[in-house]
Design a protein around this nucleic acid. Sequence first.
DNA 1: CGTCGAGAATGAATCGTTTCAAGATTTGAA
DNA 2: TTCAAATCTTGAAACGATTCATTCTCGACG
Lengths: 335, 335
Amino acid sequence: MSASVRDVAAAASVSVGTVSNVLNHPDKVAPETVARVQAAIETLGFIRNDAARQLRAGKSRSIGMVVLDVGNPFFTDVARGAEDRAAEDGFTLLLGNSDEKLAREGSYLDLFEEQRVHGILITPVGEDLARLGRVQANGTPAVLVDREADRAQFSSVSVDDVAGGYLAARHLIEQGKRRIAFVGGPHSLRQVQDRLAGARKAVAETPGVQLELIDTDSLSVLQGRAAGESLRSREAVHRPDGVFAANDLLAMGVLQALHMLGDIRIPDDIALIGYDDIGFASAAVVPLSSIRQPAALIGYTAVDLMLREAAAGAGFEREHVVFQPELVVRQSTSG
Amino acid sequence: MSASVRDVAAAASVSVGTVSNVLNHPDKVAPETVARVQAAIETLGFIRNDAARQLRAGKSRSIGMVVLDVGNPFFTDVARGAEDRAAEDGFTLLLGNSDEKLAREGSYLDLFEEQRVHGILITPVGEDLARLGRVQANGTPAVLVDREADRAQFSSVSVDDVAGGYLAARHLIEQGKRRIAFVGGPHSLRQVQDRLAGARKAVAETPGVQLELIDTDSLSVLQGRAAGESLRSREAVHRPDGVFAANDLLAMGVLQALHMLGDIRIPDDIALIGYDDIGFASAAVVPLSSIRQPAALIGYTAVDLMLREAAAGAGFEREHVVFQPELVVRQSTSG
DNA sequence: CGTCGAGAATGAATCGTTTCAAGATTTGAA
DNA sequence: TTCAAATCTTGAAACGATTCATTCTCGACG
């Protein structure tokens, strides 16, 4: 169908090797020849076949990334940062969405391995990283994003979620709230576990504070709304007076159920805080307090580590970058 | 590095052809042999090299998609629909973000062509589709998303933006607003042109209604906030009483500037309507009226058309699907 | 008992690019 | 004028999976 190097070579009356050199090492070819070959490329509409190129190279110029939810602005921000760093070195970022499902995560991992991707960035769904370990063993560096694990095996870029959870819960307590509810799930997600652990710590520090768990199936607006509705349907005295949602999407859902569909005052009746500080949080019905993470920087750093690991080859000393989260107070907790 | 079909063949004491058959046509191989080969694959940790596979096949199992802004939930919704349809036929969606920049759009197009992608879905940045025409001519079907153009050359899935713009502006007028401002840009985007054209039509229908244009550099929250601030800094009498933003991101920005940073009442002082009806619109400080588009369905349909075109080959009769937008009234226009 | 055919397995050829050792040509110095 | 060095160009080999014309093996049937 489309022209190959051979066709270009014939049209320019040179060998295929020379065409390839024009493409990849133009300095090794006489200027006049370069011009002739480029003219031929132009007239034939030649387009490099990346498959053949990769086959020879053994590796692609792509980086694979698997996130938990592309619909979550936090992850698109991370991806944007990752893309920026990748572009600096001429790599392309391939974005996959696991939707918090192990099966989908697995098929993206398969795909990326088959594509001989340069490296993988992943926010894993579960605790079992054996599959990822195999990828790593096959020579494809994998970096954990927004998650830390076996420090010797995987480099990681994360945020101290325990500290973040602590900040959130303590803030609610400082606002005078005593019956705190943690809305989040599934608990197989490390992020959920850690944020809850931080909250537990803050609760334990202050006598008389109770912590209630409200589980969700995923970290989505819809699940948040469901959780909020279950709270709304309770008698007022049995409701918590502070809600800490495991991320902003959930918090937005809770907010919708309590404030917009119900007549519960935020923050007077119930104070609400989320996590991630996505752009939309500040523009919510009641501007949402949240825990800010440096999303773009996380992505940028993750690609950076990955590239370094790929360049260093085996025996690379894994690195671990941990950012500190930051409390952002808005009206949803401070009237 | 990693095992090849040849290694597997040796380990299972069969020929490479047989290994390939086990992988692709297991029914053509004796069950016992299949088992033996699969065992070998397992123990060697063999992973198909997609580059080699594609090289032979000539085409990849991927579909390329270029959107204007991944940060815009509208486009991630479209992408989600596209991914679903692609997955039905075993294709993978590669998502690229042009960020409304011609250069980035071009480099994604290059990349996709080099990867011999099965087809391309694109919301083009500018009016010049010559580049895309060349892609099409080289045998890669391209479908326009959220945009219509040369009907004979490209299939398209779009929403009647003129009708949408009309709906939005007429709604503001029906709410008694007479000094309408259209916030949007760049005008090189067809979406912006069309929505404005619709608004103009509605304005022309009612005597005594003025339309003012407030240009933005892109369709982002930040640009919306800037536009809102310029409005806020005016004397009240010179402000419009109705604002139609070219998309919800802009509208959210305007909302922040007017309502949260200023003390302008929405919708009493200024009514505000956006476009796209992204999920966050309903949860805004003042729930945002908007024009709804069937995002996921647009993506789903676009892949469907693309796949049909790819299957039919040259001489395919281009198809054009146009959805009708829908007015969603919330508090930002109706107190 | 010979022949035919279905089913299974084979392995060389192929896809298009890059690499690299070897050959060809030019340049410059002696 | 000659030779070595520097500069260009060449073309075959390699990457790894898939295809397909061929070969091989049985078993059934006349």
